Computed example of a mutant assay.
Amino acid sequence: METGALKRKAAQIRMDLLRMIHRAGTGHTGGSLSNTDILTSLYYRVMKIDPANPKWAERDRFIASKGHAVESLWCILADRGFFPKEELETFSRFGTRLIGHPNNKVPGIEMNTGALGHGLAISVGMALAAKRDGRSSRVFCLMGDGEQAEGSVWEAAMAGAHYRLDNLVGIIDRNRLQISGPTEDVMGLDPLDDKWSAFGWHVVPVDGNDVDALVNVFEAAPEVSGKPTLVLAHTVKGKGVSFAEHVPKWHHHVPNDKELALALSELSAELGSLEQIKGGQA
């Protein structure tokens, strides 16, 4: 998918996840909006996957270590055909497979996540297994920035460098907000780039809401042989909804009817602008 189509798809996914959260009355809105461009770039352009054969041995793996921001992932997996789109209407209902964190009973989900700090360690194991099995698979692990306060993240970072896992790509959704406020107030993280470099990773800062830039970074990895890649994706929490951007309460705020209508109006306008650009290029 070319980058213009990726931008349009990201706007559509944001609209879908807002409707889903509103309908369910629960969800992690801000982080799902911030990571949408990352997931859209991976699932529609970069990753080697087959929705008709989700257990294909040569597939690339994606681990949502920040599992609470699952809403964008559910919408993308449905749109890619891993399960019927109609199932999105069951999100967070009693008995559903589509719970508030990734659930590996759903095709396309590699592991259950939720408790922060575990996804990178599992990803290290998957990347090491691919190396030892002689597979070309890459492993992508999306982490939150607040998650960087977990010690297990840094144990896994050491292991990834030690085993020279250049088929491993860690991604930090660096929106600088977590449930209890700005990350630098809760537990200072900067300079994250220097810290990951010191742990032996090749660090690439990028605008995490720019699909052109994201695609270039993901497709180039690994740029350094024998080193895992850390994509430091600078994003906006609540991206795409003006009154949600940079607002801490939108971490898990559910839009009411008025807020949903306003948000969909903004995203529809953005989608319309992108469609006009598409038409002008045709």
Rank of each mutant, 00 (worst) to 15 (best):
E147Q: 10
N35K: 06
S32I: 14
Q281Y: 11
V215P: 08
P191V: 03
S34T: 00
I171E: 08
T29F: 02
L73G: 07
A52Q: 14
L98C: 10
K249T: 05
R8V: 00
L73F: 14
T90F: 03
G30V: 01
K9V: 06
G81A: 13
L18D: 10
R14F: 08
A5S: 11
L6W: 14
I49K: 12
A220C: 04
Q276C: 07
G146N: 10
E147S: 07
H252N: 08
K258G: 11
S65M: 06
I171M: 08
T3I: 09
P205V: 07
M47R: 04
D79V: 07
K239W: 08
Q281V: 11
F94P: 01
I172E: 00
P182Y: 09
K105P: 01
A121L: 11
T40M: 06
L262W: 04
W250P: 14
I277Q: 14
G272S: 08
D210F: 13
H28I: 04
S265V: 00
R97F: 04
E150S: 06
S123I: 09
R59M: 05
M20K: 11
A69Y: 01
G27P: 07
A233V: 00
S242G: 11
V215N: 03
A5D: 14
S197N: 13
A233G: 06
L142W: 08
V217A: 15
K7Y: 02
T26V: 07
N216Q: 15
P228K: 09
S136D: 15
A24T: 11
M20Q: 13
L18R: 11
V70A: 13
E147P: 04
I38R: 08
A220W: 00
G30E: 01
